[in-house]
Each structure stands twice: as C-alpha cells, then as structure tokens.
C-alpha cells in the first residue's frame, strides 16, 4: 500500500474503532468501563497537571524509558556476545541447552519473588527487563550464524584473511540484520515487561506504577490511558528501529517486519 493510502486507511480504522468502543459503552453502562472521551480527558489531565501526586505523564514515560533502555542495553551487552560465541562454537550451546532452553520459557513475572528478595532499587527493573529482552537478542544472534555464507568465508580465506578478518568483515556484517531484528523484538518484549517490573519497584513514577496507582483507586480512565501510552511508545520505538534498519541495510531489497 502507498504511504498516503495507508495513513488514510489507518485513520479511518482508528475512527471506526473509537466509535465502536463508544457504542459499547452505551450498552454496557458500567462505571468501570469508560468512554473514549473519558480516557482522552484523563490523558490531558495527566499530561498537563500530573497525577494525584503531581508527577506528570512525561516524567512517567521518561522514567519507564530509562529503566527499559537500561535493561535492554544490558541484554544486548550480554546476549550478542554470548549468542555470537555459542553460534560460532556450536558445542558450547549444544552442551548447555538443558539450562538455556528451560530458562527461556520461564516468564519474567515468575522471577518477581526472587527479584524482590535478592535485588533492590534500579537493579530490580534492569533485571526483569533484561530477562524479557535477553532471549530474543541471544536467540536471534545464535541462529543468525547459519546465515553466514560458506562462499564468503572461503572467499576471505583464499585472499589470506585470518580468523579476526573473517569475523569482522564477513561474519558480523552478515549477521547484523538478524541481530538488529532480535534487538528490535527484545526491546519490544522488554518494554512489555515494564508493568511487571514496576509492580515491585515500590516507587511512584513510571508508566507501570501509574497504572497500578490508579487501579487501586478504581479510576479506570487513567489506567486505560497508561495502557494506551505504553502501546503507543512501544509502537514508536519499533518504528524508529525499523527506520534505522532500513537505513543501515539499504543493500537489502527490503527489511521484513
């Protein structure tokens, strides 16, 4: 679809969705099922005046972003080198599968009790987001090694290229698209962990904290507002990443979502 058409179509879909939402509120008529307009009002109030404790929405977003990005960067700093090492030296992965694979399927929420007992402050957030972001980054890097073409390796060899040359000039450029795609997914998953992470943080700022704060007060419009903001920020981060991928990998015909 052409960009302009796509924007127009999405605007129409969004409008229809909002109208449908509004229509259902007329049927349901529950005080805990707000109208779109109530959420918009809550948004304006949170953005302009701040929450019940005076923290503005911008601050909530900023603090959550800082936590997620820290955890995400930590996940990249660990996941990429480990994935690269295990991808290049396959036995290391094959012989530790029994540890890696089960851990991968433990949801970050299940780690919360341990995180409460063992960690405090900022490190709790970083740990939980790291758990969410690490595996997409790690697994994508690991799997990407297969993408390295044997012909490219032989080409480098026949020119006399040594191991470090092959790593720097063949392996890393070959796997970059996969690694970046893994990073994009990891950032998304890390961002999705923000509510769980902030549930245990015990601090009053952050989008997750905002949702929980208003949930306790049974004020649903603010809760939905927090949810929508999480969704939209996630979308923007993803789009930003995609734009970077398109720029970096313009040698590929297209970047597939």
């Amino acid at each position: 679809m052409k960009p302009l058409r796509s924007i127009a179509a999405n605007a129409v879909a969004l409008l229809l969705f909002t109208l449908a939402w509004h229509a259902t509120t007329l049927v349901v008529r529950s005080p805990f099922y707000p109208k779109p307009l109530d959420v918009l009002k809550a948004f304006c109030k949170l953005a302009l005046e701040g929450d019940i404790e005076g923290y503005s929405l911008g601050l909530h977003i900023g603090v959550s972003l800082l936590r997620v990005i820290s955890g995400f960067l930590f996940a990249c700093a660990t996941g990429i080198p480990l994935g690269l090492a295990m991808g290049l030296y396959r036995p290391a992965y094959e012989s530790t599968r029994s540890i890696i694979e089960p851990v991968r399927f433990i949801p970050p929420i299940a780690w919360i009790p341990l995180a409460i007992v063992l960690l405090r402050g900022f490190s709790r957030y970083v740990f939980l987001i790291w758990l969410g972001a690490f595996f997409p980054v790690f697994i994508n890097t690991l799997a990407s090694i297969h993408r390295v073409s044997q012909v490219h390796v032989e080409l480098a060899k026949v020119f006399g290229g040594d191991r470090s040359f092959i790593l720097a000039k063949v392996v890393i450029p070959s796997i970059m698209p996969e690694v970046l795609a893994g990073m994009r997914i990891g950032l998304g998953v890390g961002w999705m962990c923000i509510v769980a992470a902030e549930m245990i943080g015990g601090e009053m700022v952050g989008l997750g904290s905002l949702i929980l704060k208003y949930a306790e007060l049974l004020r649903v419009p603010e809760v939905i507002c927090g949810m929508v903001v999480i969704g939209v920020v996630g979308l923007l981060m993803n789009e930003l990443f995609l734009a970077a991928e398109r720029r970096l990998f313009k040698w590929r015909r297209e970047v597939v979502v």
Binding site: L155, F159, D162, S174, M176
Partner: peptide, 25 residues
C-alpha cells in the same frame, strides 16, 4: 556461486581482497 558481499558496494567488493591482504598478510 554468487560470492559478492551484498552489504558492500561494487567498490567495496573489489577492495575486499586487498583489505584481507593488508589486514591479515
């Protein structure tokens, strides 16, 4: 088989062998 490096331009591809010679040999 196609051996060109898709992430390099024509110039970068032609340079590749020389880079290997300089850096490794």
């Amino acid at each position: 088989e196609p051996s060109y490096l898709p992430w390099r331009t024509v110039w970068g591809n032609v340079k590749f062998g020389l880079e290997a010679k300089v850096s490794s040999l």
